[in-house]
């Protein structure tokens, strides 16, 4: 799997997210309170809301449009809601954050 660098960890606020615009769609990169990094499509499975704009808590994010809670680990909607976002493999090399290139080469839905 080829990884490409998208950010330094300092680019992302703790309990926050940034997005990367790619030719294949928007990717959200999350940083949790414990400095774990996750990446997934920046599209809520409910109505396509930009998850990178949501509030990050624990290892979940709450979508800014209608408060669906998405697990950063599995991409699955939590609670009674059903749906899932594609997650993207992430690697850390020191402060550098890399995500799996293959995931970007799949045209966005």
């Amino acid at each position: 799997m080829t990884f490409i660098e998208v950010a330094s960890i300092d680019d992302i606020p703790v309990r926050g997210a940034r997005c990367v615009k790619t030719a294949f769609g928007r990717i959200a990169i999350f940083r949790t309170a414990s400095d774990e990094i996750f990446a997934m499509e920046d599209r809520c499975p409910h109505k396509g809301g930009p998850l990178s704009q949501g509030i990050v808590h624990g290892s979940s994010v709450t979508c800014p449009l209608h408060n669906w809670v998405i697990s950063l680990e599995t991409g699955k909607a939590q609670g009674a809601d059903e749906g899932a976002v594609a997650t993207i493999p992430v690697k850390r090399e020191g402060n550098r954050i890399l995500i799996a290139l293959a995931s970007l080469q799949r045209p966005a839905a």
Binding site: I4, V6, A7, I12, R18, V20, K21, R26, I29, L104
Partner: peptide, 16 residues
């Protein structure tokens, strides 16, 4: 500033 600018993906060669 970070709030309003998306991250830029860097060329894969650099990251390899």
């Amino acid at each position: 500033k970070h709030e309003f600018q998306p991250l830029a993906a860097r060329a894969p060669a650099q990251a390899a």
